[in-house]
Simulated scan of single mutants.
Amino acid sequence: MIVEKTELATIFKIEKLSIDDFYSDFSKKYANFKNENIIIDFSKLKRVDIENILVFLPIVKEWRNNGMSFVIVLNEIETDILPDEMNVVPTLVEAKDIVEMENIERDLGF
């Protein structure tokens, strides 16, 4: 797992792990990033099952309840079959755009 901190968000990139292994590793560490926007970049993966992404739903809900953004980058999945609470986009640029928009909405009190 590669972790990159920016002013906007902390970006987690998967290396050679499976999503299950990544989730296991991430779930042990994510509490250290509670006050940060999170982007998980799975854009290099092929053939990802929706079940693999849905394991992140409890964390996504927790982040949204804490007033932070949580976005997953995944270019090979139909996003309309995912729950509305999950932000899944095909590129890292779009993920950053979503975090910026959500930051603006929070600043304006939406």
Rank of each mutant, 00 (worst) to 15 (best):
M1P: 03
E4K: 15
E4C: 05
K5T: 14
K5D: 07
T10W: 04
I11T: 04
I11C: 11
F12V: 08
F12M: 10
K13T: 13
K13G: 07
K16I: 14
K16F: 11
K16E: 12
K16G: 15
L17Q: 09
D20L: 06
Y23W: 06
S24W: 08
D25N: 10
D25H: 05
F26E: 07
F26P: 06
K29F: 06
Y30I: 15
A31K: 11
N32A: 08
F33L: 10
F33N: 05
N35Y: 04
E36C: 08
I38Q: 03
I39D: 01
I40R: 03
F42V: 05
S43E: 08
K44Q: 12
K44C: 11
L45C: 01
L45F: 06
K46P: 00
V48W: 00
V48M: 04
D49E: 14
D49H: 15
E51D: 05
I53Q: 01
L54I: 06
L54W: 03
F56R: 09
L57T: 03
E62Q: 14
W63V: 02
N65S: 14
N65P: 01
N66S: 13
M68F: 05
S69F: 02
F70T: 06
I72S: 02
L74K: 04
I77M: 02
D80T: 15
I81W: 00
I81S: 00
I81N: 05
L82S: 11
L82E: 12
P83K: 07
D84T: 02
D84N: 09
M86C: 11
N87L: 04
V88E: 01
P90D: 12
P90V: 09
T91V: 10
L92Y: 15
V93P: 06
A95V: 12
K96N: 05
K96G: 12
D97Q: 15
D97Y: 10
D97V: 00
I98R: 06
I98D: 03
E100S: 11
I104M: 09
E105K: 15
E105Q: 09
R106M: 01
R106G: 01
D107K: 14
D107W: 03
D107H: 07
L108T: 13
G109A: 05
F110L: 15
